[in-house]
Write a protein that binds this DNA or RNA. Sequence first.
DNA 1: GACATTCTCTACTTAATTGATAGACTAAGT
DNA 2: ACTTAGTCTATCAATTAAGTAGAGAATGTC
Lengths: 148, 148
Amino acid sequence: MISQKAKYALRALLALSHQAADQPLLIAEIARRNRIPRKFLEQILLELKHHGLVASRRGQAGGYLLLRPAADLPIGEVLRLIDGPLAPLPCLSKMAYRPCADCQDVEQCEIRRVFAEVAAATRAILERRTVADLAAPDGGAETNTVSG
Amino acid sequence: MISQKAKYALRALLALSHQAADQPLLIAEIARRNRIPRKFLEQILLELKHHGLVASRRGQAGGYLLLRPAADLPIGEVLRLIDGPLAPLPCLSKMAYRPCADCQDVEQCEIRRVFAEVAAATRAILERRTVADLAAPDGGAETNTVSG
DNA sequence: GACATTCTCTACTTAATTGATAGACTAAGT
DNA sequence: ACTTAGTCTATCAATTAAGTAGAGAATGTC
């Protein structure tokens, strides 16, 4: 299960993606539209800013802006920032590799092999699908479909 | 990430799968071989028993037995018992469907669409791969490969 | 330069979950 | 009756999840 925080982050980024590049969106506005607790959203956006996904301006006419086109922002990247590794086992994570605490030889781990398939499958989806894909209207035209 | 408990459960089931059908395996033995905390393993096996995956005998020559051939025991079934739904969102779970707390219309949820792909992909793997697949020796003969 | 606006940062809280540990209890066999 | 083993319930410490609180710092307006 992805966390509530990650869901909020994705929805916030989606909201920002609808915005013109010189029209920042207020935290309060994003929170209101998406029914996200405002103070919680502040933290989330700040985190996204620290990781370079969004920018912000303070004061009058301030708010948040997306720093990349939504189509260049994979869902997987957002999830990694917020929820940590996509992989189902630490020893399968590309970005945050860690041998599992309890198996002494990673290569010999029986469980690893099967979950490597899962890791590959989810990566294939989450690194291809972007925030722009979240916006797809009626199941129709998606941005990055292989078939189209 | 799958839980430590689920890893233990899978390893325990794998250990049981190597056993003859009339030769129960002791909790203590499974724990020792797989470096699983013994009392924790007791709970896990009990849970698996309550869900009908294994049987047990008490007293002298007691221990645990697998109730189905390992090849009929999908990894996904074990994970569901131990870690809960496989789906990345509650509203995508087949076994434990729940609308997400914060979106009022499930059909309209933007996030849902992309994660439905993830759910389908992981299900495809975890419902096909079984405990028997964990045992596959050197990357060679697996039980359920589509290609072979 | 006061003032309102809006983001920034740090700390805190509360509840649930994870990964265990403890110990009394019950059944089976000898 | 005694030993061997599984059964059940409670408890615990650490971590995480989700959210709240509030002081502070930049920015623009009058």
